[in-house]
């Protein structure tokens, strides 16, 4: 079974083809959304409401990481991975790994949130974070 590696950031979809759901906050006084959840509105310091955010967005920027550790010359064991900052329709920017390979990505592409298994619990559960998957090819 897939479970979030940490509680409070997203929930796992019920169907195998559904996207994870980001757990965010909305500040009525600032009319602004946030992710992850805030204890108070960081702008007005007023109370916030729990909300769920969109699972699709637009690439704001991207990169391909090959040597993840500063000063290291050792390549990532996976052979490198893509990563992106993505703007959601609510005005929230989040960053996470991006599926695909160099040449696949460009700013402005639409992406969808997916789960990414990064570890396994003692009971066999798959521990997941989030990642992005392209919804359209580069132009």
């Amino acid at each position: 079974m897939k479970v979030p590696i940490e509680e409070g950031y997203f929930r796992i979809p019920e169907g195998p083809d559904e996207s994870p759901v980001l757990l965010g906050s909305y500040s009525p006084s600032a009319k602004t959304y946030f992710w992850p959840r805030r204890k108070r509105c960081p702008i007005t310091l007023d109370a916030v409401e729990d909300c769920e955010l969109s699972n699709e967005g637009i690439i704001y920027s991207w990169t391909f990481v090959l040597l993840p550790w500063l000063g290291s010359m050792e390549a990532d064991k996976s052979g490198g991975f893509g990563a992106a900052q993505v703007d959601l329709p609510e005005g929230v920017r989040i960053q996470a790994p991006l599926e695909g390979k160099m040449g696949d990505w460009e700013i402005g592409q639409r992406v969808r949130l997916v789960t990414r298994t990064v570890d396994r619990a003692e009971n066999g559960d798959e521990l997941c974070t989030i990642a992005f998957r392209l919804l359209e090819a580069a132009s």
Partner: peptide, 15 residues
């Protein structure tokens, strides 16, 4: 692995 180490400094400044 954790949510806040999902990405590293090298990625952030590359963005």
């Amino acid at each position: 692995p954790s949510m806040d180490t999902n990405l590293l400094p090298a990625a952030f400044f590359a963005f």
